[in-house]
Simulated assay, not measured.
Amino acid sequence: MPVWQWLLDGAGLLLGLFLVYGVALIVRRRVISRHGGTFELSYRVRSTRAGRGWLLGLGRYSGETLEWFRIFSLSARPKACWSRAELSFDGRRVPEGPEEISLYPDHLVIELSTRDGDLELAMSTASLTGFQAWLEARPPGTDWDQR
């Protein structure tokens, strides 16, 4: 078999794998969002360099926790989870410098405090409204002054 046929077969195989991966991502997103409560949510995993360390993803409310899924992963399990009782809203800001390119358009950076330290998330204004309502809807008897 000539070399050009091997190259054509290889290109066809790569294209097929790429299409299977794309379909798998679509199916995964449907499975994650089938119960509702999902939104575009970026998570800053590294804050050592200004504007760097952002990963795009999806957020999902699951009872008392906020789950975060990487956007291009095939895993059905969340990569990070935060309990509502451990989160404290500190403020919001507009993305600056390289963050504008790294994040979805029109997203705001949300600064939170947890028991493990500071946390930065990015979401749209509409998602922020829902997030703040979710944070404030703690069950009765919650210690509002915890830290």
Rank of each mutant, 00 (worst) to 15 (best):
P2D: 10
P2E: 08
V3W: 15
D9K: 14
D9A: 15
G10W: 13
G10V: 09
A11T: 10
L13G: 09
L14C: 07
L14Q: 07
G16V: 04
F18D: 07
L25P: 01
V31I: 14
R34I: 06
H35W: 11
G37A: 04
T38W: 02
L41W: 01
S42Y: 00
S42K: 00
R44Q: 08
R44C: 05
V45I: 10
V45F: 12
R46F: 12
T48E: 14
A50P: 10
G53T: 04
G53Q: 06
G53E: 03
L56S: 14
L56I: 08
G57V: 03
R60H: 03
R60K: 10
Y61G: 00
E64P: 03
T65N: 10
T65A: 11
L66S: 02
E67Y: 03
E67K: 06
F69T: 00
S75P: 06
R77L: 05
R77W: 06
P78V: 00
P78E: 00
K79D: 07
A80T: 01
A80C: 06
S83G: 12
E86H: 09
S88Q: 12
G91H: 03
P95S: 05
P95I: 02
E96S: 13
E96I: 10
L103Q: 04
Y104Q: 14
P105N: 05
P105Q: 08
D106K: 12
L108D: 05
V109H: 04
L112A: 05
G117W: 03
M123I: 02
T125G: 11
A126R: 14
T129D: 15
Q132H: 14
W134V: 01
R138P: 04
P139Y: 15
D143R: 13
D143C: 09
W144V: 14
W144K: 15
D145M: 14
R147K: 12
